[in-house]
């Protein structure tokens, strides 16, 4: 990754958004058309770091998200590459008309870096939880959607977004994410999932905070149950990596999706669409927030409460392994 030298040690000392802020600063050092915009959340989203070296390139629009995204659209149409940061819930809902009409419809080069995604702002309650954004954003034509697993992949995504012409939505969490990658192992390309563990018994497809939990669950399953689970970091939700999903359907015939999002409309739905259209039967389970407004609490506790922490994922995997399949002679026909 050009210009970035973070290691796993750096990343563990910084929140995911801080790593994002640093990545943006590097981009701004290298490209003079990069600007940052926020709506009174320069500190919370860490986009404020940009102002340390480039004070004239950070625009605070005050607490006014509609104007925030409209201004970003105008800037992009005039040749700048705006990175816009506010909380995910305000990006995907408060200013959705602007995101839809000004940015996605006009196919403008705006990078929306939405923080406090999923239940990561757990104690703030449902006004600040955001478990709907992936579902909403997935229906915006022209939009690329990325949900990085940790700080390193967030930095990779933010950097990759610069080279990806058109609107991009990157969803980050609040605070610290458990590190999944160090720089040497994260081969990040938008639209290309990463296989974190090999396995042929079932596949766990995860995004965001769920990726670390999925990998931990796979480790438990392998060591305690002798179940070999493939783990895929599906960091790009749109366009989704169809090949990786179809291969998982073919090879393992059991898929669990895990996401810090309502189980309706997000990663699970995106995977299910590909799977259903493949014509191949597959045992399938979506883990995430079960179509409810979440209780309040710490992010870790909430993931456990709704059954998508490492133990919840492991339990779902054991259950799925008990499902029987009838032999299907034609299984290999189309691969």
């Amino acid at each position: 990754m050009a210009g970035l030298t973070y290691t796993i040690l750096d990343a563990t000392n910084m929140s995911t958004a801080e790593v994002y802020g640093k990545a943006l600063e590097h981009l701004a050092d290298n490209y003079d058309n990069v600007v940052g915009l926020t709506a009174d959340l320069a500190k919370s989203t860490k986009i404020g770091v940009l102002a340390e070296k480039h004070p004239d390139r950070l625009y605070n629009m005050g607490i006014a998200e509609q104007n925030l995204f409209g201004v970003a659209a105008g800037m992009a149409s005039a040749g700048l590459v705006p990175y816009v940061s506010t909380f995910a819930i305000f990006t995907s809902m408060r200013a959705l008309d602007q995101v839809h009409t000004d940015i996605c419809y006009q196919n403008l080069n705006v990078k929306m870096i939405a923080t406090h995604g999923g239940l990561s702002f757990g104690q703030a309650g449902s006004t600040h939880h955001c478990t709907e954004d992936i579902g909403i954003m997935r229906t915006m034509a022209n939009l690329t959607i990325v949900v990085p697993a940790d700080g390193i992949s967030a930095a990779e995504a933010v950097t990759a977004a610069y080279s990806k012409e058109g609107p991009v939505y990157i969803r980050l969490n609040r605070g610290y994410d458990q590190p999944v990658y160090d720089t040497s192992e994260c081969d990040f390309q938008i639209g290309k999932s990463i296989e974190l563990a090999e396995g042929s018994d079932l596949t766990i497809i995860a995004c965001g905070a769920a990726v670390y939990r999925a990998r931990e669950a796979a480790s438990i399953l392998r060591n305690s149950d002798g179940i070999h689970a493939r783990v895929i970091d599906m960091h790009t939700i749109k366009p989704i990596d169809r090949d990786a999903i179809l291969k998982a359907v073919h090879d393992t015939r059991r898929i669990i999706t895990v996401e810090d999002h309502n189980i309706i409309g997000g990663l699970g739905s995106a995977v299910a669409e590909v799977m259903a259209e493949s014509g191949k039967a597959c045992a399938f389970k979506r883990l995430g927030v079960p179509d409810t407004f979440s209780i309040i609490g710490l992010h870790e506790d909430l993931m456990a409460h709704y059954g998508f922490d490492m133990n919840g994922i492991a339990s779902a995997a054991r259950e799925l392994m008990n499902r029987d399949f009838e032999e299907d002679d034609d299984w290999d026909d189309e691969l």
């Binding site: 201004v71 659209a73 105008g74 800037m75 700048l80 009409t101």
Partner: peptide, 23 residues
């Protein structure tokens, strides 16, 4: 600009105006 939903034009215009200064 593609417009139609009302209340969008002035924010977009402001972005264009600020971009002029930035560039």
């Amino acid at each position: 600009a593609s417009t139609g939903s009302l209340g969008h034009g002035l924010p977009i215009s402001l972005g264009m105006a600020l971009a002029a200064k930035q560039r």
